[in-house]
Design a protein around this nucleic acid. Structure first.
Lengths: 345, 345
DNA sequence: AACGTCGATGTAATCGATTCCACGAGGATC
DNA sequence: GATCCTCGTGGAATCGATTACATCGACGTT
């Protein structure tokens, strides 16, 4: 692979001049520039990003550590992050923690060793010493979706409180009174908050959230199945379960189906996180939709602001309820299929 | 951030000794080793991977360029790739081409600039000059899922021919005679092969695949919807559509639903790629399942073999048909729900 | 006692870029 | 005509590691 020296030799100039051409510094003669460019072309030269990074101490790379790539929500987040980063001249290295704190640490360490310019994290747990140290040491960092309280790092996330209230209103309106939740890990902010929001919203209707109706999940499908089975075995099973993420909702669907029961007749279901497939499940699932793409983009902007010396602000965007049929009663004409075109009728 | 010099100073030895300790070379005294380790600990020193890569000309990093992160099939592939790579001591940088050749080139260039040790590609098109050059220049490379004919690069993929034959047998057995396909881009091997396998399998039953029943899709949901609408508008619409990937199947489902029609009564549906959600769609979708995880792992092994100077072989694994209800008739007891437990009856 | 060997260590070159500094030529200024 | 910029350029230091080579003392062999 050709290096800058080869280009310099080919063009009959010094490496300094080649470098100047490549980084378009003003003081290079048109003639030298042309010769360098020709040499670059003929050798198929591409600057070595490793060497450049060593010298400039910038990698133009962002690290993104997400909790679970197999979760469509995070996939979409990752995609929007990469898009926005690319637009701003950065690339992204994704680390998948699979909801495991040890793996999360592995990736954070790896990214730090590679001297990424900044780190975007959706923490799996309450925060490992490693991550806290990195934040304290001044690594530009932004939390997205989930965060760690007490750390001075901007947070970009959705506030689901309003949407959860809407959901509970919807459920109450359908006559449901025994409402249960499949919670996420208590070590995560989203795990705790969604339970709290749910409890609060129930309170507004004079309803309780008994311990037996709080199932401990881990944001993975299997836990959703296990918890749902537990609910169904209760002497007085709930009428509705609210899964704190889409994978646990999938697990709940598995459990209900395995018993030969039906949603929503035997058990109603709602989920946090809306994904495309929820439109086509049997029945379509009522869900709380986050502005995922916007979150990813805002997080990148905040991080790049930090990296480039600007403040970098926290952002909170509202989530919204999308009513479908999994809690009972057809949505009336509340969600007509967007593709239906009745203009010619 | 502490460098090797700081460690050397703190331990009272030269940088060479520090480096020897870190790479556990034999000839270091126990005493020196202890002092270095203590200094490393107290400074929280971590070697700079950028500097190390520059010197050793290895990054211990694999590039993975996939066609579409939002496609669950590729997500699963990416996950297994990362897992196996990690086990072998490599990290992975993922580039998402979004089925766009220009984006694919962007990522390949970026990865090459970063001097990744090897490249895993699932090409979006017939092969850009950039990728062909890289292969010719000796960059360790392996194609996964899709490939480019005429390039001397190992290919790791699934052979769907047998499964497609099984599918056609199943459809024929259900009485379907007018079978259509939503094809992938002709520029991709999987795009072409699936059509060919389908046509061949039909031939075995004396059935034709007329041009009108070949819809041109691009592996994205929207194209599946568009093509399906076209099929439904035909004077003689097909009885079955076979989508060449899961996203186009999702689009087909959208189209059928938008018209107020039902699967499989009005139109039967089958898909290439099996994903978890297909169990819970309305109706559950009959699909061809690839051994995705095994493909990802085999691809990494082949690539690492190449990188480390061993041959690195092509691998072809069989896909298999998973019958559900989207083509008509309940699966009889052919696919009992795996969770159903009738031991106590 | 002289020599060779071996183990532990340090010095310095190197990887491929960027960038500070010095230098020479040419033009403007007085 | 001397002085001073400005512009274009090259030389060399630098980033943080790895590693070939040199050095030196201790020890074993004859």
């Amino acid at each position: 692979m050709a290096s800058i020296k080869d280009v310099a030799a080919e063009a009959g100039v010094s490496v300094a001049t080649v470098s100047r051409v490549l980084n378009d510094h003003p003081s290079v003669s048109a003639e030298a520039r042309a010769r360098v460019l020709a040499a670059v072309e003929s050798l198929g030269y591409r600057p070595n990003a490793v060497a450049r990074s060593l010298r400039t101490d910038q990698t133009h790379t962002l690290g993104l550590v997400i909790s679970d790539v197999m979760n469509p929500y995070f996939t979409e987040l990752a995609r929007s992050v990469e898009e926005e980063a690319r637009a701003l001249g950065y690339s992204v290295i994704i680390g998948n923690a699979d909801e495991r704190p040890d793996l999360q640490d592995h990736h954070v360490r790896n990214l730090l060793d590679r001297r990424i310019d900044g780190l975007l994290v959706s923490p799996t747990d309450g925060g490992s010493p490693l991550m806290l140290d990195a934040a304290r040491a001044g690594t530009p960092m932004v939390f997205v979706d989930r965060w760690i309280p007490g750390v001075d790092v901007p947070v970009v996330r959705a506030d689901g409180r309003g949407a959860v209230r809407d959901l509970v209103a919807h459920l109450h309106g359908l006559g449901h009174r025994r409402l249960a939740i499949i919670a996420g890990p208590a070590a995560t902010t989203t795990g705790r908050e969604r339970v709290e929001a749910f409890r609060e919203a129930l309170g507004a209707y004079g309803l309780e959230l008994p311990d037996a109706y709080i199932g401990q999940g881990d944001f993975q499908a299997d836990s959703g199945r296990r918890v749902t089975e537990g609910f169904l075995d209760l002497p007085e099973p709930p009428e509705v379960v609210f899964a704190a993420d889409n994978l646990m909702a999938l697990g709940a669907l598995d459990a209900v189906r395995a018993r030969g029961l039906r949603v929503p007749d035997d058990l109603a279901l709602a989920a946090f996180d809306d994904i495309r497939w929820f439109v086509h499940t049997d029945p379509p699932v009522t869900a709380i939709a986050q502005p995922t793409g916007e979150l990813g983009r805002a997080a990148v902007r905040a991080l790049v602001d930090r990296i480039e010396g600007r403040p970098g602000e926290s952002v909170t965007l509202p989530a919204r309820l999308v009513v479908r049929r999994s809690c009972g009663e057809p949505p009336a004409p509340s969600e007509p299929s967007p593709v239906t075109n009745r203009s010619q009728s």
